[in-house]
Amino acid sequence: MTTTLIVEGMTCGGCEQNVIDALEAVDGVSKANADREANTASVEGSAKTDALVGAVEDAGYDASA
């Protein structure tokens, strides 16, 4: 299953990597990707959307599903 999140606050490649790292730390995530230009992150796996949003917010970015 692929989940796409809207992520605001990413301004550089380091921000994208921070979001990817936060998402990949969530149980059930097999792969994550972030795109600062599109303000999105996509996640493959079985993780709950609430957990994904929470992980991104804990990393310091605004997120919504």
Results as ranks from 00 to 15, higher is better:
M1N: 08
T3Q: 13
T3S: 13
T4S: 11
I6Y: 06
V7L: 02
V7S: 00
E8F: 09
E8M: 10
G9Y: 01
M10A: 01
T11L: 06
C12Y: 04
G14N: 12
G14Y: 06
C15F: 06
E16N: 05
Q17R: 12
Q17A: 15
V19Y: 09
I20W: 00
A22F: 02
A22M: 01
L23A: 05
E24P: 03
E24R: 12
E24L: 04
A25W: 02
A25V: 05
V26C: 05
D27F: 05
V29Q: 01
S30H: 07
A32K: 13
N33S: 15
N33K: 13
D35L: 08
E37Q: 12
A38N: 10
N39F: 00
T40Q: 00
S42R: 12
V43N: 03
E44G: 11
G45K: 01
G45M: 03
G45I: 08
S46D: 15
S46R: 03
A47F: 04
A47W: 02
T49Q: 15
T49F: 03
D50P: 07
D50T: 13
L52Y: 01
L52E: 00
V53A: 11
V56F: 10
V56M: 04
G60R: 08
Y61Q: 06
D62N: 13
D62F: 13
A63R: 03
S64T: 15
A65I: 07
A65E: 15
